[in-house]
Amino acid sequence: MKEVLGHVAAWMCVLLVIFSAPFVISEFAPSTRSIQECVESTVTVHIGEFGHGSGVYISPNCILTAGHVADNDESLSVELNDGTILEVKQVLLDSDDDLCFLYTEESSDMWIPMGSIEDVSVGDEVYLIGTPLTKKLRLSVTKGVLSHNDRFEFEYWKDVFQVDAYAALGNSGGPLIFKGKLVGICVGLVGSRAGSGLILCEPVDDIDPWLRSK
């Protein structure tokens, strides 16, 4: 009986690690990542049979993406930088923002530490990572600048900011990087399907407190 209880306790510990990982983002995250490490932390989110978006690991078992990437009844899986496909086991949608958290059973040893858009000034270089247009362009990196230092409300987005890094359909959910830290998630491309329109990102400043409140 004691042996059985021991096995149960062990499995409960495993589940706790899997599903509580995002609540301890700040404790485990490294200080910064190189751009290559940021690419290795980014995933392609497969939506059903044909659709796709992008996402990024923010803790060993938690991927942050755009809410509209996962707010449907399609099955979800993620493809890592090395081509490994992982099944999404749990979805947590932030209904107030266009953000979503995807959980995988398998752990990643590569994830991006949190930064703040408040530390970025107009004209500062930022990098956007994602899978635009086709899965053949998986985890492409583009470079741009912060275009405007005010966060604003636009259409159904309550709190976004503008950058000029190239983006296209499929970039949604991809990370915006400044000095090796995650400062935003790409959520919108307004005015063009080819990447020359207005690129909007959600800030990540309030993600850790939001997760801790759940």
Rank of each mutant, 00 (worst) to 15 (best):
D164R: 08
I129S: 06
G144R: 13
C38D: 11
A194I: 15
E74W: 10
Q162Y: 03
D71H: 05
C38Q: 04
I25S: 12
V78Q: 08
D71V: 03
V122N: 03
V120L: 02
G67R: 07
W157I: 00
G191L: 01
V163D: 00
A165D: 09
F152N: 02
Y103D: 01
I85S: 08
V91F: 09
V4H: 13
S75D: 04
Q90D: 11
H68E: 06
I18M: 12
V43G: 05
K214M: 06
S121A: 12
P203D: 10
G51C: 07
G83R: 03
T142V: 06
W11L: 08
D208V: 12
I129K: 10
V88Q: 00
I117Q: 06
F23R: 12
Y127L: 11
E155M: 09
Y166K: 14
F23E: 11
E3K: 15
L137D: 09
D109L: 06
A29W: 04
N61T: 08
L80K: 10
L133T: 15
K181G: 01
K214W: 05
T131G: 08
L169E: 15
S107F: 07
M114L: 14
S95F: 02
L102V: 00
W11F: 11
C201F: 06
S41E: 01
E87I: 06
I47M: 13
D119C: 09
Q36N: 05
I199N: 14
F19E: 00
S31D: 11
D82I: 00
C13N: 14
L200P: 01
L198F: 00
Y156P: 03
V69K: 12
S192P: 02
P60M: 12
Y127K: 14
V4N: 13
E40M: 04
I85A: 02
M12E: 14
K181N: 04
P175F: 06
L198Y: 07
G130Q: 10
F152Y: 12
V8F: 15
T32E: 13
K136G: 03
Q162P: 02
